[in-house]
Design a protein around this nucleic acid. Structure first.
Lengths: 350, 350
DNA sequence: TTGTACGCGTTATCAT
DNA sequence: ATGATAACGCGTACAA
């Protein structure tokens, strides 16, 4: 199979390569007739420009990349959709790239930027423990999304981040449970070690218990399994089963993601415990599914659309030099489903 | 910020560029010492090879691409995971690429292949109505996955495809419902026009009804909305609401995807109809969530792992010239959940 | 308006 | 084992 290059097209049309280039890239100074002729032969011979060669020459492409860690996370999926739309509006192309769990997101970013001459990067998910040194090498604007509060040991002027304050929001959620009379509140937490959202949400849980003068008991802090997908339904299921088997009494269960919570509800059901009659369950994220399961899941809903839009706006502002790195925090909203109930006095004080 | 190239590294180390290249690419004939020295300066200066330049020169990369249409589809997510693992085992890298709904997957494939010198392509999702002409231009091996039976008007020697026979499987599902005494079976179908899986599953529905001498009634064929995501929970919900409002009686509902089915269950519940007491619901795909919702969804489970493994194996076989294009069909399995029930005689003959 | 020629950063070939 | 050099396919300054 013959793979024509720009030279071949030029030769066939009896023009120079630059004319063909001009035709392809919609340059203004080109005769309409010649342009048409060129475009026709391009179609006829099935010429496809080589992007690698283009990128090599190009100084700057009207494009950004979104680097996602954990593509199966439904929360990200909806973020991506919005970002994609916003890019289209601005006539930017968006490169979606998937980072494997053992890869370093900044390293990947460095590569992609070199390869594609991008103007900006959005990081979705993953940790945020990156050395200043590495971050400095990343010369294009970038924004970390979905993490509103970040450990203090990272110098904040190096990067932008946008999201909800995971710690505070999860504390609010626990407050809500406490107000409903719950005291024995178990937590399902993933990636509690390291600087991840799991850790932040666990911190919020502890904050709230302390503030309410409830003892933090390690028996009620259930770490999900490390050997299977961290935020999966299955992990929520298995971890909850283990909790139940421990015979540790609890009246409420906070799962640090909706997927974990849905898995937990199934486990409770299978063990003959009713939600919310026997146990109240709350999740975190506010994914669409939370509103479809039975009973509807009470959860903290992150304003996906807002976050996504703010993220892309900030990125473009940094690109155009209008703004410096920023740290924006959005308010999440408590969505009351049907998976929680208030304990009555008798139950509360048992 | 200084961005060193291979030349700079060579100059700094006092060696030629080819030596640096050899160091980077693990070529055998290089002195271990010089290699170490080079690798150190590379680290020191933070040199990142330019992939575009590499791809330009390279004749062939040990890599394949997976082109996904509809990244939010949880069914694909699990396929991708398995494919990723298999690639790793074979020391191939996998490029994941997202195709927007209005893009032509073959066009994208053409571009990506040129850009990256890939050895093969896997298409996930999307339609399969591609002209022979275009397919011929795609000179690297490729496999369409997740569509076992394909319209006859496409010449089968041009491509491979692997998956379950959507038409037959959905017929089996309807058979099951009929055996349970159901006769008024509604269907929620997406993308019924065009050559999509939606169409195939609708065909299976009709086949089964005919075979069982049940009249096909257009009032029970509910097309999902085109203006929102075709296989979404929301679409299942809204379309079911519409069906209920039509007052058309039905005892069972077949949704052509699990997500649609879960949306449908919610709608039924919200309208005060119990599943399965008032209406039996079945889905299609066998996504993980189907086994977690309440009641558990009866569905047709595609053997994801098998399909993914067979797909990658076939692709590699074609790459190595061992095999020609093939058409493999896998058997799906009926997973009985709790969302269906048998009608008793009285109800059946009403 | 159009064509020529150079260079982008890398790998492969060949010579040393 | 190592170095020089020719491509790879394209965009673009510059000349025409």
């Amino acid at each position: 199979m013959f793979e024509p290059t720009i030279k071949d097209i030029a030769r066939i049309c009896g023009v120079g390569v630059s004319t063909v280039s001009r035709a392809i890239n919609n340059h203004p100074d080109i005769n309409l007739e010649t342009k048409e002729k060129i475009m026709n032969t391009i179609k006829e011979y099935g010429y496809v420009p080589n992007n690698s060669a283009r990128n090599l020459k190009r100084v700057d492409a009207k494009a950004i990349a979104v680097l996602v860690k954990g593509i199966s996370n439904p929360f990200f999926t909806s973020m991506i959709k919005v970002i994609e739309e916003e890019c289209k509006k601005k006539h930017y192309s968006m490169e979606l790239s998937h980072i494997e769990s053992d890869e370093d997101e900044v390293d990947v970013a460095l590569k992609v930027v070199k390869e594609k001459r991008l103007r900006g990067i959005i990081f979705l998910g993953g940790l945020f423990s990156h050395s200043d040194e590495k971050l400095q090498k990343l010369t294009v604007p970038f924004v970390f999304s979905t993490a509103g509060s970040v450990p203090e040991n990272i110098s904040r002027s190096q990067y932008s981040n946008i999201g909800v304050d995971d710690r505070r929001e999860s504390a609010k959620l626990i407050d809500y449970l406490v107000q409903q009379g719950h005291k024995e509140i178990a937590i399902l937490v993933a990636e509690a070690e390291g600087e991840s959202i799991g850790k932040l949400r666990l911190d919020g849980y502890k904050d709230a218990l302390r503030a309410n003068h409830i003892t933090i008991r390690n028996e009620l802090i259930c770490n999900t399994r490390e050997d299977i997908s961290h935020f999966s339904l299955e992990n929520g299921y298995l971890t909850t089963k283990k909790l139940i088997e421990s015979k540790e009494p609890f009246t409420a269960l906070f799962a640090v993601s909706d997927t974990l919570a849905i898995g937990a509800m199934r486990a409770l059901l299978d063990e003959g415990m009713k939600v919310p009659q026997d146990v109240s369950v709350v999740g975190y994220d506010g994914i669409e599914m939370a509103n479809y399961v039975n009973p509807r899941l009470t959860t903290v809903k992150q304003p996906v659309e807002e976050i996504a839009k703010a993220t892309i706006k900030l990125l473009f502002d940094i690109i155009s030099g209008k703004k410096d790195h920023q740290h924006m925090t959005f308010e999440a909203s408590l969505v009351e489903g049907e998976s929680t109930r208030a304990l009555n006095k008798l139950e509360t004080t048992r």
